[in-house]
Every structure is written in structure tokens, then in C-alpha cells.
Write a protein that binds this DNA or RNA. Structure first.
Length: 572
RNA sequence: GCCGCUAUCGUCUAGUGGUCAGGACAUCAGCUUCUCAAGCUGAGAACACCGGUUCGACUCCGGUUAGCGGCACCA
């Protein structure tokens, strides 16, 4: 494609990402932003962020804040836009009303646009009629040739008007899409479309054309939903005498049933992915592979490496289904590749929010940036993203939330806890339910969980006693995973019934589960966890023995209940 | 309804006239194993359909079908 090779040699590329602050940024928005950003950077161009807030009713400051925050979090830094003046501002459309009015007046004077007084209801009926007749749904042109005097009269009567372009499209409107190639639109299918509700109330297609010109945009990268806006914008550019930028339309992200991504599946604000504990790196990597692929078969990409490799030529034309499982896998991959210290720092806010670890309110300012307000902090009404940690966190001591003890949790201890679950984590938020038992004084679980296979209650108790005795004997200085494993394995092979080994060279040994399963459950209270060797090591001897005793008591209590039930039923 | 876009394993995709149609996620099986993961090994799994061009079509052309997007005084 000629147009694509042009891009490579062309100097001074300027692109923009132009979201409207009418909702939180979604995956689809972000993918458009990412591709636009990569295209700009790859070609040494300028990446501009423009806030399209012409819709006064739906635009909200909190959404604009979300746009800026999300972009920064993902590392999609803009060269010009809010907070970064590049000389082509303002970058918020609501601040450019004078500019739009100027061009609108110019078009009015040149008789290229007209006031339309048709009531909305009438237009709606007309569209329905056209639909029923199999005709294209376009404006009839009723007010197009209204004389200035008639228009004035209408205004005097207080009638409301919008401004429409006098569409004189006589031939096909054509443009070469950088991704899709040539796209043609027959004349007669667009009509006199609306461009403003008033002199200071521009509509999307108009403000977009003005801004793209004003900001000297050379390449427009946007979603496929704008393909049919493109001929309208080209027509407007022609009316205004503006050059037409190059266009590249990206396909959409689809739900698993290939329908449009809806709130039901996947259309989740990006901020929620962040809250749940997805890494920006994983999200970027996931999204870029939704529609783009390098020349070889690599699948792991950092934003930095994409800067070198990305090209619009290799962008897919068809829509891509959003695949949560793949995102989870990628996030797990990035989590596993984090340094343990950095992973622990990322987990910390989740543990704090869950109340497993407490940081005193006084010490917050030094440790947490930015700081949630004290009230929010006490009521735990803050978001994880508000707890991003300072670099110094690894030097901190964090008081643990245990009423009866004054134990101090060292960062180093947290590192060891988190370390046990690094391979098991798909998202950061999971760290809470995975490791809560390390931070609790007493754990709660059903005694039935202690049972391995068909073990009898008595056997479970015996098994726990063996574990207890074995671990009691271990000297404090020998309380290390390696040693604990050796000792426990030796005991385990003696405890369980003999099991024939598949390999005849290996001597038959006891079913290790007889000892290890009840022990692991006694320590963790969970049916799935890290190995008992790892848990005992991190938990420490004192707590380990305490938990085993707790388990034995649970069994006894249960037997008593059973016995009393039995006694009662005997009586009757 | 009208216009436009799209079409390779379940999903994301590689592929540009001659390939055993490749990779990743997911699935299944095996190894490992006290559990859950992770890891390693292996397996199954696709060119929407119909015509045409050609010695030869996943690849080029036409049509059909299906999906998506748009047809606002939203963006």
C-alpha cells in the first residue's frame, strides 16, 4: 500500500487520542489510545490528548480525571494535552467555543450551512417512514433553502434551530484508510447533516474537524465506529478549505458471543482492572495482541519494545473477541516475573485494605502516596490505587492487626508470605484470601476438611499428634524449609499405609497424605494452599504447634457433639 | 431497511498461488505430587459456503451467508 510506505518517510506526524469524558475509560478506548500512541512514537510523531467534552449534559469532571489517571497509569504519556501545553491548545473542546463560533459564522456568511427549524419529533417520524420504505434515513432538506427573512421570522417567533451543512456532494467521497485500504461512499446517502446546535454548541463532527485542523493533525487513528463519520468530516473539510488528514480505523473489541462488548461481559472500566490487581504491563501486552502481531511468534511485549516494533501494516481488520482467560494468564505471567520485593509492595495495599495488616494513621503520610483522607482511611473507604506506595516501604515495620499481641510484621516477613504464592497469583487482589491465615490468630474451617481420603477421626488425631511431636523436636535454628521437609517426609512415610510405587526400584512407602494433608489443613484451614513445609517455615514453630493443637481440639469438640447426638437419638 | 467493514483451530493470530496450514491462551492426557498452582512432555482442534481464474487455490475475482459498525439536536 502506497499510503503506508508514505507514513514511514513522512516527517512531522501528529496524532491524537480524543475521548469524551462521558464515562470511565474502557478497554476499547485504551486499545485505541495504545495503538495511536504507538503509531506516533514509532514514527517520531507527536501524541496529543484531546478531551471532547462538547456534550455538556453527559461530560463530567470525574471522567476527565479518570482519563488522565488511567493514561498515566498505563504509561501512555501525551506530548500535548491537558497539563501539557504544546502551543496548539486549549485541548479541551469546552474551552474552544470562540473558535467554533468563528468558523460557524464564516460558513453562515458563505452560505454553506443553514438553520434548520424542523422539530425533532417530525424528523423522527420521517426517519421511521424512510425506514419502512427501504430508503436511506437522511434529512429531507426542508429548511435548506429558507430565505434569510423567513429564518429571521422563525427566530422572532422563538423557534429553535440547529445548523446543518449544505451537502453538495456530487460524486463519491473516497479515502484511503491506512488499515482497510480504499473506502468509498456513494453520494446521496448522507444528506444535510447537523453540525451544531447553536453558534456556541458544536456537535461532534464539526468540532472534531476544526480541532484536527487547528492542532495540525496529520493522522487520525480511531475506532471502526467512526468509519461512517469520515465522509461527513471530509465534506466539512472541503467546505472549510481544510486539508484531509490520513485515517486509520481500528476494529472493535467484541464480547465472547461476538456481539458488541457490553457491560455484561468485559466492558469494565479500566480502573476496575487496576483495582482488582491487573498490572499495566499485562493490560498493554494483552490489548496490543488483540489485533496486532509481530513478524515472528513472540507474545510478550513491553511498551518499550512495542515502540520499536509496532506498525499499522500488521493491524488486523476484523474485530477481536475479548478473552479474559488470556488476560489472566498474561497477568499471572507478569506477576511471576516481578521481583519478590516489588510484588510484595504491590500486594501490601490489598492486605491493608482487607484489614489483615494495619498501618497506624500517624505513619501514613511518610509511607503512602498519595494519602487518602483520614476519615476515608478509618472507614476503609478508599481505593487500592490511592495506596500506591513509596519506594521506602521495604524499610518499614508494620504493626499487625492482632488484638492480644503486639507482634510486629516486618516487611521481610511479608516478603516470605507473598513468596509462597507468587506462582499461584493471577491478580493481586487474590493475595488476601490466599494468605489471610498467616495474619490471623485463629482460623476457622470445618473439621471434615482435615480428613484425607477415608481416614477415621482417630487416625486424623494420631496423624496430628505425630506431626506435633515431630515438629516439637525441631530446634529453632533448624526451623527451615529444607530441614522441615526432610523430617516431615520421613515421619509421613512411616505413618500412612504402604502404597505400591510405580517404579519397582523404589521401595514401597507410606501414603504421605496421611500426615501431610491434615497438617496442611490444620495450618492453613484451606483445601488448597502452599505445601506444609513452606507454611511451617514461614509460620514459625510456636504458631505451627498452636494450630495443630487447635485442630485437635476441633476434632474433639466435634466427636463430643456427635456422641451427644448419638446419645440423644438412642434415648428416643 | 439503507450504507460501509469483516470472515483461518473454542479464542487471539501466522500465512500474500505449491506449507504435514505454524504459534499462544483454553481443553485433554502424562510427568511431578499431601492439595492448589507453577513447570516440563504430548494430543485433539481451523481455512464459512457456492461459483470462477489457474497446471494448482486458505491465498486472486464474483456472489451467498453470517457477524460487526453507522444511519442523532451522542461522541
Amino acid at each position: 500500500m502506497d499510503s503506508l510506505t508514505d507514513v514511514k518517510t513522512e516527517k512531522g506526524i501528529r496524532t491524537r487520542f480524543a475521548p469524551s469524558p462521558t464515562g470511565f475509560l474502557q478497554l476499547g478506548n485504551i486499545r485505541t489510545a495504545l495503538f495511536t500512541y504507538l503509531f506516533a512514537r514509532k514514527n517520531q510523531g507527536v501524541f496529543i490528548l484531546r478531551i471532547e467534552d462538547t456534550d455538556k449534559e453527559r461530560s463530567k469532571p470525574e471522567y476527565e480525571k479518570d482519563i488522565l489517571e488511567t493514561m498515566k497509569w498505563l504509561g501512555l504519556n501525551w506530548d500535548e494535552g491537558p497539563e501539557v501545553d504544546g502551543g496548539f491548545g486549549p485541548y479541551r473542546q469546552s474551552e474552544k467555543l470562540d473558535v467554533y463560533e468563528k468558523y460557524l459564522r464564516q460558513l453562515l456568511e458563505e452560505n454553506k450551512v443553514f438553520y434548520c427549524f424542523c422539530p425533532e419529533e417530525e424528523l423522527e417520524i420521517q426517519r421511521q417512514y424512510q425506514l419502512s420504505q427501504g430508503q436511506p434515513m437522511i434529512y429531507s432538506g426542508k429548511c435548506r433553502d429558507l430565505s434569510p427573512a423567513a429564518a429571521q421570522e422563525n427566530f422572532r417567533q422563538g423557534k429553535k434551530a440547529i445548523i446543518r451543512l449544505k451537502n453538495n456532494q456530487g460524486e463519491k467521497t473516497v479515502f484511503d484508510d491506512l488499515i482497510r485500504g480504499r473506502i468509498e461512499f456513494e453520494p446521496g446517502l448522507i444528506g444535510d447533516f447537523s453540525i451544531a446546535k447553536g453558534l456556541r454548541e458544536p456537535l461532534y463532527n464539526f468540532s472534531c474537524v476544526i480541532d484536527d485542523f487547528d492542532m495540525k493533525i496529520t493522522h487520525v487513528v480511531r475506532g471502526e465506529d467512526h468509519v461512517s463519520n469520515t465522509p461527513k468530516q471530509i465534506l466539512l473539510q472541503q467546505a472549510l478549505g481544510f486539508p484531509t488528514p490520513k485515517y486509520a480505523h481500528l476494529s472493535m473489541i467484541l464480547a465472547p458471543d461476538r456481539s458488541k462488548l457490553s457491560k455484561r461481559h468485559g466492558a469494565v472500566p479500566v480502573r476496575e482492572y487496576r483495582e482488582e490487581g491487573y498490572l499495566a504491563e499485562a493490560l498493554i501486552n494483552f490489548l496490543v495482541l488483540l489485533g496486532w502481531h509481530p513478524e515472528d511468534e513472540r507474545e510478550i511485549f513491553s511498551l518499550k519494545s512495542l515502540l520499536k516494533e509496532f506498525s499499522l501494516e500488521r493491524v488486523q481488520k476484523s474485530g477481536a473477541v475479548f478473552n479474559q482467560l488470556r488476560l489472566d494468564w498474561l497477568n499471572g505471567f507478569y506477576l511471576r516475573n516481578l521481583s519478590l520485593e516489588s510484588l510484595t509492595e504491590k500486594c501490601l495495599p490489598y492486605l491493608i485494605k482487607a484489614g489483615l495488616i494495619k498501618v497506624s494513621a500517624e505513619s501514613i503520610p511518610a509511607q503512602l502516596i498519595p494519602v487518602p483522607t483520614e476519615e476515608k482511611w478509618r472507614e476503609q473507604k478508599y481505593e487500592i490505587s490511592e495506596l500506591s506506595l513509596s519506594k521506602k516501604v521495604s524499610e518499614l515495620s508494620l504493626p499487625k492487626k492482632v488484638e492480644e499481641s503486639q507482634e510486629i510484621v516486618e516487611f521481610d516477613y511479608l516478603t516470605r508470605v507473598v513468596g509462597l504464592y507468587q506462582q499461584r497469583l493471577k491478580k493481586l487482589s487474590e493475595i488476601v484470601e490466599l494468605t489471610d491465615f498467616f495474619f490471623k490468630d485463629k482460623i476457622v474451617y470445618s473439621f471434615e476438611l482435615l480428613r484425607w481420603k477415608e481416614m477415621k477421626d482417630k487416625e486424623i488425631k494420631e496423624s496430628l499428634s505425630v506431626a506435633e511431636k515431630t515438629l516439637e523436636k525441631v530446634k529453632t535454628e533448624d526451623w527451615q524449609k529444607q530441614n522441615l521437609e526432610t523430617v516431615l517426609l520421613a515421619a509421613a512415610e512411616k505413618t500412612g499405609p504402604k502404597v505400591q510405587q510405580a517404579d519397582f526400584r523404589v521401595k514401597d512407602r507410606g501414603d504421605r497424605g496421611y500426615l501431610l494433608w491434615p497438617l496442611r489443613v490444620a495450618l492453613s484451614g484451606k483445601k488448597a494452599s502452599a505445601s506444609p513445609f513452606e507454611i511451617t517455615e514461614v509460620l514459625g514453630q510456636e504458631k505451627t504447634l498452636k494450630r495443630i493443637k487447635q485442630a485437635k481440639m476441633l476434632l474433639e469438640k466435634n466427636n463430643k457433639t456427635l456422641f451427644s447426638c448419638f446419645a440423644r437419638s438412642n434415648k428416643s
